[in-house]
């Protein structure tokens, strides 16, 4: 079973050791760059590129964090990113659940075609929309970040696909039938019965949407020109340029920017990792 050792001559114990060694090496490769940046964020400017490189900061200092928070509008960037991402997440989860439910539990004329259209929108590269969408929004006066960073992105096809798969598996028809016999309206059924049954997968979709929005870079780069409305990625990028590519402040900013994302992910990882893959596994 162990693909790392196709020969199979070694004993089981040795094979296990090899497996764990490989997994540990991968763990190091995937996390070391981030830990290196974390360590760098506590170093004085001159030590970040010191040779030989020091794994741990010595002396360790909060100076970068203090300067960043006192001299830069980091709090505002953070607020902007978080509010945008949370709003987008709340709306998106609801819209995706609606559409997913429509496709999962109803048979209607054009269902196959409409589903195909929805699914095929996954293969529309953002680059083709970038320019015209920007032009349309600016010309129609909808270019405000509060609108443009949120509204166009609240119905991702991936989310609908994921919800649809979940509802097919997780919402029994009998429950819906029983509610209908009791005279419950369709929208009430969705709110009162379907949504509560979906809670774990809504969590999964929520984390996914939050990360998409919180980490997005190209669209805010194009759209937001007023530095008062910068999101975190834009703020960090501008700061890095303004500081003449010095790493001390931006590393502190990077750590502070990543912490919430990693915290949300680690907290909800089970739901996310299982939720992400349900759709794809069944195909």
């Amino acid at each position: 079973m162990n693909p790392m050792n196709p020969g199979g001559r070694l004993g089981l114990l040795a094979r296990r050791c090899l497996l764990y060694a490989t997994l540990a090496a991968l763990l190091a490769a995937f996390t070391a760059p981030l830990l290196w940046a974390l360590s760098g964020s506590f170093k004085p400017r001159g030590d970040i590129f010191g040779y030989p490189p020091r794994l741990l900061p010595d002396p360790a200092t909060w100076h970068n964090y203090r300067t960043l928070l006192s001299d830069q509008p980091f709090g505002r960037w953070f607020l902007m990113s978080t509010v945008v991402a949370l709003t987008a997440t709340a709306v998106s989860v609801f819209v995706c659940a609606l559409a997913g439910y429509g496709f999962a539990k109803f048979r209607f004329a054009g269902r196959r075609l409409l589903f195909g259209v929805m699914f095929s929108s996954l293969s529309i590269p953002f680059a083709v929309i970038l320019v015209p969408l920007f032009v349309i929004l600016v010309k129609t006066g909808l270019g405000s970040p509060w609108f443009a960073l949120i509204v166009p992105w609240v119905a991702p096809a991936f989310g609908i696909f994921m919800m649809q798969q979940y509802i097919v598996q997780g919402v029994p028809d009998e429950v819906l039938e029983a509610a209908r016999i009791d005279g419950c309206g369709e929208f009430r059924i969705f709110l009162r019965i379907v949504l509560p049954l979906l809670r774990p997968s809504l969590g999964a979709l929520g984390v996914w949407t939050f990360l998409q929005s919180y980490n997005s870079f190209l669209w805010p780069l194009v759209l937001v020109s007023d530095s008062e409305q910068y999101t975190l990625p834009l703020g960090l990028q501008t700061l890095f340029r303004a500081e003449n590519r010095q790493y001390d402040l931006v590393l502190a900013g990077a750590v502070l920017a990543v912490l919430p994302a990693v915290a949300v992910f680690v907290r909800l990882r089970r739901q996310l990792l299982e939720g992400l893959s349900t759709g794809a596994v069944k195909g």
């Binding site: 995937f30 996390t31 290196w36 870079f217 960090l236 990077a254 920017a257 990693v262 992910f265 990882r269």
Partner: peptide, 14 residues
Amino acid sequence: FVPMVVSPIVVALV
């Protein structure tokens, strides 16, 4: 999975 959670700007800085 963690690298996927990290914002691209942070990836670039790192």
